[in-house]
Design a protein around this nucleic acid. Structure first.
Lengths: 378, 378
DNA sequence: TTGTATGCGTTATCAA
DNA sequence: TTGATAACGCATACAA
């Protein structure tokens, strides 16, 4: 009997057996030394030497099969190109790495197949837990989550009875903050450039917008509502279509990508922002600060939601028997130059009016991101 | 003898044993049915039923230990916040998924520790291969790559003797394209806003800039060179510092994030772009098209490099014995409104002048991204 | 077709 | 301290 030829892995790489044989000890001793537990000075020396000589690298898969954990956590988002996910990812990563784990990100493209597929594959033990922020939530998603062998935390709206850990915000209230702000600034013909209505955020923004207008006694003019998708180009084109058929004095955009697109459309047509048209985005991403003029934007607390989701996930990994939890992060409005005529320069002005729908209004010009990340290119 | 109590996994989840016992067959039969090979109609029925009843989900780790592969490929980049990596990632993902694998992304923050750590952890079999695009390449990186049990492809410059698959561009030539273009447009006082000089791209841009000026007989004015990092805020601040002490009539920025920052600084000071100062970025990311005016930018073929890197990786996974390969992607210049006075509207004008240093100059206004990704928020 | 037995590479158990 | 051996959960060569 005896193993294969030279106690080497299938692809010829060294294993504990290789090291043990070379050091002249048992695999148990080799394993112990390699893990830093026990061993006489002489044994330790021999094993260390043997491992170095053959270039031994432990097989993480085998180790995980034994330990039932990989130390990996995954984040599944629709589109890494959207800065809101970058902010969320950074917050999550901070929490995850501080627990000694590593974060892996997967872009699903928003496709249901891809998302449930990912759940099927990664969740089958390749990662210890997963955070997902689906744009559309279907029964397929819920089924996949419930059957998943690993903990899953969802960022975004979920049916009330779903037994799934979940961190959400109130984007309807967020929309109300923006509308309140614009109305307080004297705007009456407020337009909306939204994403698809069959998405969770798209539907919420639409409903919130109509409700907010109603609360101010402003009738809804359907010509002032345009729908594209949540991308820059769609926002630019949708805004252009809207301007071709109506004359808004303010524009609320469903996210900052759309808002930057709308800004582009406005500037192309030589309209002044905010003098002719006030502009407000949503998500309060880096893009809002990068635009000129800087964009007012409704913060939906993406970083806070990410951080909280990560914390919930770690708690559940530690104790799988916890009951499902549901947490909320309140939206707030960050006012900058794109919606305030008096202050066209960076660093917006806080709105003094208390919004009707709860939530806070914050001054603009947050401190520069203090994370040590490095942007770079080839 | 006999297994634990109820042939169930350590954490109580069903295994093949659970299913087999419940179906009254051997684990071999259960495994076969579960994998869709063989089995009588009756056996198949019983196993399927049993699997469904207990909610069986295969353990991917155990399967991988057996098959020696996970079907996962990783991409390690410094900063997901930089759109250039988003473009690269999309190209890579297309190739990877079409091979039936899945792509996972990891943001390293550009820290050496994090990058070599990642190599140590993921590369130990959690993924079948890895693509990395480090901002700084140290001996630690090379050591870690060489010792890695899985294939690694590097996007970026590498020492010539490094036995590592590698896809690179010539950013010095790219810088020359930009300088040639600006000089041809009559600009003489060209500034550079660069990233850290101890990074591979930073050093290349600095050297390329000086060489390009020399080739036109323009003396280097150190006051026209500013260094920050590769981020938006740093670009904005560095540009402001530069304007405070010199009067450039053109500005070349080391990447698009810096360029957008510089644009912000220029507009804040009410300077006209491109009339007063022409602006050229690098990487030709989505940001270049989102800015107003749209930015001319040196394309370093990030999508092409990503695609090629993915192809190289898949080839090597299929045949680990291939010799190390080194591929090049030529830079090109995309001219848009920010550097051409005659055409301030979207859709730039191609430069007619053939650059001195090889490489192509392309017309601006590429078609909108046709990938089906969805940007979205909460 | 079905079951038995073994291996994947590692860690943990338990005598010695 | 050390070594033989049994898991971890799955797949498969081989024999029945």
């Amino acid at each position: 009997m005896g193993r294969k030829r030279l106690q080497t892995s299938a692809d010829g790489r060294p294993t504990v057996h290789t090291v043990a044989a070379r050091a002249g000890v048992s695999i148990a001793s080799a394993s112990r030394v390699l893990n830093g537990i026990g061993g006489s000075a002489e044994t330790v020396r021999k094993v260390r030497a043997a491992a170095a000589e053959v270039g031994y690298v432990p097989n993480a898969i085998a180790r995980s099969l034994q330990s039932q954990r990989t130390g990996l956590v995954a984040l599944a988002v629709a589109d890494i190109g959207n800065p809101v996910y970058v902010a969320m990812m950074r917050a999550i990563e901070a929490v995850v790495t501080s627990s000694g784990r590593q974060l892996l990100v997967h872009a699903t493209g928003g496709e249901i197949e891809s998302e449930t597929d990912l759940l099927r594959r990664l969740a089958n033990r390749y990662v210890d837990g997963m955070i997902m922020s689906p744009i559309r939530i279907t029964d397929r998603h819920l089924d996949a989550i419930v059957v998943s062998p690993i903990p899953v935390v969802v960022v975004g709206q979920l049916p009330d009875d779903a037994p799934v850990d979940n961190v959400r915000t109130d984007s309807r209230a967020g929309v109300a903050l923006a509308v309140d702000h614009l109305v307080a600034a004297g705007r009456q013909r407020i337009g909306l450039v939204n994403g698809p209505l069959d998405t969770v955020p798209g539907a919420a923004r639409d409903a919130g917008f109509r409700a907010a207008l109603a609360s101010h006694g402003i009738p809804v003019d359907e010509r002032l509502i345009e729908v594209g998708d949540f991308q820059y180009a769609a926002g630019r084109d949708a805004a252009a279509r809207l301007f071709a058929r109506a004359e808004p004095d303010a524009l609320l955009c469903a996210n900052d990508l759309i808002a930057v697109g709308a800004l582009h459309a406005l500037l192309t047509e030589r309209r002044r922002v905010p003098e002719d048209v006030a502009l407000v985005g949503m998500d309060d991403t880096e893009l809002a600060q990068m635009a000129f003029p800087q964009l007012s934007s409704v913060s939906l607390g993406s970083a806070a939601r990410g951080r909280r989701a990560a914390e919930l996930l770690l708690e559940r990994i530690a104790d799988p028997d916890l009951p499902p939890r549901r947490e909320h992060v309140a939206p707030s409005l960050v006012v900058r130059a794109s919606s305030t005529v008096g202050r066209p320069t960076p660093g917006g002005t806080p709105s003094s009016r208390r919004p009707s729908s709860g939530g806070a209004t914050r001054p603009g010009g947050r401190a520069a991101p203090a994370d040590g990340t490095v942007g770079v290119t080839s």
